Computed example of a mutant assay.
Amino acid sequence: MDHKRIEWLFFIVFLLIDIYLGIEILRSPVNLSGADTTTRSVASIRSEMKSDNIDLPDKFSNAPATGYYLATKNRNYLSNKIDALTNVNARYSKDENVLYAAPKITTLLDKNPKKALEQVNKFKNDPKNVPYGKEFKYEPDMSSEDNYVFVQTTDYGEIYAGSAQLSIAVKDHQIINYAESYMGPASPVRELQSTISAWRAVRAMYTNRELTNNSKVTQIKLGYSKLTEVRGSTILLPTWLVWIENKTTKNITLKRVNAYTAQMLQSSTYNVEK
C-alpha cells in the first residue's frame, strides 16, 4: 500500500470518528457555562444533602474545566515486550490483552509506606521489569496496602479504564506479581472543549439518585474513560470520577459522570483497606 493510500485511509477513519462524535454531541446537548439549570440554589441542594447525611469535600470547584475527545489505536502493544523483561517471569494473554509477570529476584520493601511506594515506583519504572512503566501514575484512591494501582497517563490527562491499568500486588512487604494493560498513545480527535464543573457533576448524581443517603464523597477528579470503539480505535472522553464511601459498610464506589453532558457512565465497586 503506497503512502498516499495510507494517508487517505487515516483521513477516512478520523472523518468517521468526527462524524460519530458530532452525532453524540447533538444527541446529548449540555449547557457548558456551568450555570444552574434549576431554580434550586447551591445552598439549598447542599442543605438537602446534609439532611440526607451525605458529606462532601471541603473544597469544591464550581468552575468549568476543559478536555478533549481522545483516540487510541487498538493494538497488542505488550505482546512483543516479553523478551525485554529480563528481571521477571512474564506471559501475555491475548484474549485479555493483559501482561502478567512476577519478579525473579525478591526485593524487600520498606515498612515505611512512603519509602515502600518509592521502591515500587523504582521497580515499575525499570523497563526490564515493566514495559511502558513510566507512563503509569500511582492512584492512591484505588490502591491498598497490598495492591498498588497505577493508571496510564497521557499528555492530556489520566485514563481510568481497565484496559489502561497496572496493578502491583504485595505480600509480606514483597512484590509478588503484577498485571498490566496498556492502550498506547492517545491523540485528540476534536478541539479542546469546556466541561461541566466538579460541583455540577456531583449535583447531577444527587438529582439522579446516584448519591445514596449515609454516604461520603471522598474524592473527585477529572480523567478519561472509554466511550466507544470505532474502526480499530478506542474513543475516550473527559469524565468526572467520583469516589463515594458508604459510611456503614465502608465500601467504596467509583462512579463516572460524562464531563460534557452530565450523564452517568458505568460504575465499579471495590473495597479498599487503608
Rank of each mutant, 00 (worst) to 15 (best):
I168S: 05
K171Q: 15
G223S: 03
L26R: 15
N74W: 03
H173I: 11
A164L: 04
S44Q: 14
E139W: 09
T269W: 08
V242A: 03
S267N: 12
E229A: 12
H173M: 10
L26V: 14
Y160A: 10
E135P: 08
N74C: 05
A35N: 08
N129V: 00
N31V: 03
T107A: 07
Y100I: 06
T195Y: 00
K94G: 11
S144R: 06
V170G: 04
V13A: 08
G67I: 02
L26S: 12
R75Q: 13
P29W: 02
K115L: 11
V202T: 10
V242F: 02
T39G: 15
S163L: 13
D126K: 02
Q165E: 09
A169Y: 11
I17H: 00
S144A: 12
R27H: 11
I82G: 06
V88G: 00
T39P: 13
S51V: 06
R190Q: 12
N89W: 01
A71Q: 04
S143N: 09
L56N: 02
I175G: 04
L16T: 13
Y148Q: 04
A116H: 06
K216N: 14
K221C: 07
K128H: 10
R209E: 15
T248S: 13
E7G: 10
V230S: 07
S267A: 09
K73R: 12
P185S: 04
N251W: 02
D172F: 11
V189W: 07
S93G: 02
V272H: 06
D52R: 09
Y224Q: 01
M183A: 11
N214C: 05
Y270N: 15
T86S: 10
K221N: 10
S144V: 06
A161H: 08
E191G: 14
R209A: 10
A35G: 10
R209W: 12
K226C: 10
Y138R: 08
Y138T: 07
V217M: 02
L9F: 13
Y69R: 00
I6Y: 09
I25D: 08
E158R: 12
R203K: 10
E24M: 13
F123Y: 04
V30A: 13
N74M: 08
G223I: 02
Y160E: 07
A169D: 15
D52C: 12
Q263N: 15
N31F: 07
N121C: 10
E7W: 06
T107H: 09
N53V: 11
S163M: 13
I54R: 00
F150D: 03
G232H: 03
E7V: 06
N31M: 04
T234H: 01
